[in-house]
Amino acid sequence: MTPALAVDGLTVGYAGAPVLDDLRLEVAPGEVVALLGANGAGKTTLLRAASGLTPPRAGRVLLDGADLTALSVEDRARRGLAQVPEGRSVVTELTVDENLHLGALWCHPGRAARRAAVARTYDLFEPLARRRTSLGHQLSGGERQMLALGRALLARPRVLLLDEPSLGLAPRVVAQLMGVLRTTARETGLTVLLAEQNVTSALSIADRGVVLSLGAVVADAPAAELAGDPTLRHAYLGF
């Protein structure tokens, strides 16, 4: 089966030192993969290189077998590769409603279709419905992450790249986010690559875990196996 997302020989470097070294990774359609590893392992760089924000020195990025390497960030997004970057990914100067409409622009042509799609997002994330006219900077961390995720899903992506969605959030909010992610992936066949420091929650919803260390894949196993392997946990995941 053609993988939904494939990176092939991806090499990225700052000032001569490779952050990713000839990296190879495939994610099957509908699969949720947790991307794990310590700070500086290259998780964020891998996601940024996949979405096109960081240009690689070598290697290719493929979406459903089609080579995206030559495409701009915005064209990759329109092809169905969505990324929720770490932290401040909500446009704070826009309202919740405007943020969501921005996410719906490409996939839902026409004002009525956009409004309907945004309304479905409010059903999915109820706290957002109460804050639709609030500006992004008035939201709590959990609301922001919900907004970023809801906005990304509005574009009906083929592959969703998530960078540390649990960062700074209360455990209850993390659980809620992970739940929505798992449900959406199951119901829509969405493919997810989830970079996380919060190993336990990431592995709890993932099919497979991939561990990065110093820009290379050091472990690649089913999530349950990874969570139960004390040597691996100890060596790379710190618990």
């Binding site: 924000l53 960030v73 915005e74 990324q83 446009v91 100067e93 826009l94 996410g103 574009a155």
Partner: peptide
């Protein structure tokens, strides 16, 4: 407005 406020996020949304 989005492009001016947050260029990188806007590009990720296809703008």
């Amino acid at each position: 407005r989005a492009s001016a406020a947050a260029p990188e996020v806007s590009r990720l949304l296809g703008v």
